[in-house]
């Protein structure tokens, strides 16, 4: 059954255009006046000097999790770069000096201009080494090189920026050393 939606009939004053045009002009002028007179009126933020206040589970810029000694938790298994639909993750692996761990990333680069922020890398990571909870969604830079972030930038974060009650978001190594690190963190001796 078809439903016919008729346009509402215009009244005489609407057909004449001019009254409605003046109404519209009054609306826009009201906005212009508000913007001019009230500086705190703007809903926009001063991007990128001011960062937006995003929720914690927003898929934002990536970070690499750290072990207690500050080395990356990543074992260079290439799961994330394999899962990445945009192919923006470039990992070069090397042998780890620690004989308990097989490999570590010599370099870990993410091209944020290619990244689609889907979060598949986070899902794919077998040892919770990559996360997207930095809340830094606004990406601005002067040149393209600024958007390719390397290992240093990815690991440049402080535990105090993340919720203390969520131990997993701290630089917890997991496994056997996890409890010890957590203990150190709570006692304040954690570096």
């Amino acid at each position: 059954m078809t439903k016919v939606v008729r346009r509402p009939d215009l009244t005489f004053w609407e057909k004449i255009y001019f009254v409605e045009i003046f109404k519209g002009l009054a609306t826009t002028m009201g906005h212009a006046k508000n913007s001019l007179l009230h500086a705190d009126h703007f809903k926009v933020i001063n991007y990128p000097d001011v960062q937006p206040n995003l929720p914690r589970d927003y898929r934002a810029r990536h970070r690499l999790m750290k072990r207690p000694d500050g080395s990356p938790r990543c074992v260079a298994c290439f799961m994330c770069s394999t899962a990445c639909p945009a192919r923006c993750i470039n990992i070069v692996a090397e042998e780890s000096p620690d004989h308990h761990i097989e490999k570590r990333p010599a370099s870990f680069e993410i091209d944020l201009l290619l990244c689609v922020f889907c979060g598949f890398c986070v899902e794919a990571c077998p040892c919770d080494a990559i996360r997207m909870d930095t809340r830094q969604a606004v990406l601005a830079g002067d040149n393209r090189r600024d958007f390719v972030i390397d290992k240093t930038k990815l690991m440049d974060w402080e535990p105090k920026d993340y919720p203390l009650e969520d131990a997993q978001s701290q630089k917890a190594p997991g496994g056997t050393l996890h409890a010890q690190a957590l203990e150190e963190f709570k006692s304040g001796s954690y570096h």
Binding site: T28, M29, H31, A32, N34, S35, L36, H41, F42, K43, V44, N46
Partner: peptide
Amino acid sequence: RGAAFIQDRV
């Protein structure tokens, strides 16, 4: 500026 202010932008 006029366009920005009418659209509540800076």
